[in-house]
Design a protein around this nucleic acid. Sequence first.
DNA 1: CGGAATCCTCTTCGATACTG
DNA 2: CAGTATCGAAGAGGATTCCG
Lengths: 214, 214
Amino acid sequence: MARVYAQHCGLAQALDLVGERWALLIVRELMAGPRRYTDLAEGLVSIPSNVLAARLRELEAAGLVRRRRLAPPAASTVYELTGRGHELEPAVAALARWGMKSLPAANGSRPFRAHWLVLALRARFDEDAAEGLSESYEFEVPGDALVSLTVEEGRAEARLGAATEPALRIVADAETLLAMTDGSVDPARALAGGALIEGDPAALGRLAAILPSP
Amino acid sequence: MARVYAQHCGLAQALDLVGERWALLIVRELMAGPRRYTDLAEGLVSIPSNVLAARLRELEAAGLVRRRRLAPPAASTVYELTGRGHELEPAVAALARWGMKSLPAANGSRPFRAHWLVLALRARFDEDAAEGLSESYEFEVPGDALVSLTVEEGRAEARLGAATEPALRIVADAETLLAMTDGSVDPARALAGGALIEGDPAALGRLAAILPSP
DNA sequence: CGGAATCCTCTTCGATACTG
DNA sequence: CAGTATCGAAGAGGATTCCG
């Protein structure tokens, strides 16, 4: 085993498992659900194919990722997080929350993917501000991703897919949506920039409250 | 700038700043307070000297670490976290909490340092279980570190140094203390193994409650 | 002795091309 | 679609040396 810290420290142990380059970004990709090899490559933007293959092997060996062969009609292989892999979410969200604060405003020079919204929403969500709240929101990038944030009794779940009876639907391009959830664009400015908002206008304020600026 | 992800994603941004090998472990070392170059090298156990120098330069350039020259009597340079560096603590604690779960029981084969207790205590501390509690605990490794955990109104602070009027003092070797805070050894077993416990016996139960197994 | 810079080797990464 | 193969460039690891 090469390049491990092998120290009796939880942080060092975590980094021995997911500290290598690209490893946590692969976890990010899988947080939104199972994905195929090529989807992963696309979502990771610039990962060399050999490195992706190597990391998947390592993460599988570490018990964080599982590969599964889909049933015949869709004959394809997908990768998904194991339970242990899902347990990384609080740590990944905490890192994302920290990183957001120094993220340059979206200006088109950095690539972004609509499904990254899932992590951004989880990272931004403020449990205290959402106390007692129960409603859902839907975000759509036409022709790309559909992301929903469902709050139940103050607990949030962000995932790919439609929301059931969302109080609010926001349709915009990926750049605008990511900028909104990063806090660099507020809903009013996004609206002016071409975003389409449907639903209860008051829900917009509640949404802003439970996704405070980082 | 080499090897950056440059993606519009908080996690990628965080990893661009602290994702390189050794970077987060340097943050771990500095969480317990300012340290000199040689202290860092000792606490990181096996870091090559050139890599430590390079990382410190990068972390300083990123605004996470500051170098400071001490006043004449102690004429020496120390490194310390900036405010932005301290903000990493929740993320580091979350990673440590995750990593602890798969940390092999302390068996002497992996190096450990007494001051890692500071991170271990912060990672293990359970705010919900500590609600309303106010008392402090002191951990000592004779001839090495003195660590205190101070809980005030359910909020914890772990740091190097003595506690004021601790409800409990535990004196043991580093291995035993780290194993205790990892949850792999319970206080009763530690006592049997030679740990010295002074203070209110009931405080031992309260301590175990606010540091649940990972 | 603290705080590095240097030299060298070895591994990994990044980019691209290629194959079952 | 799901990887493997190849190859140059960059970093990590280890030991040693240098400077105040």
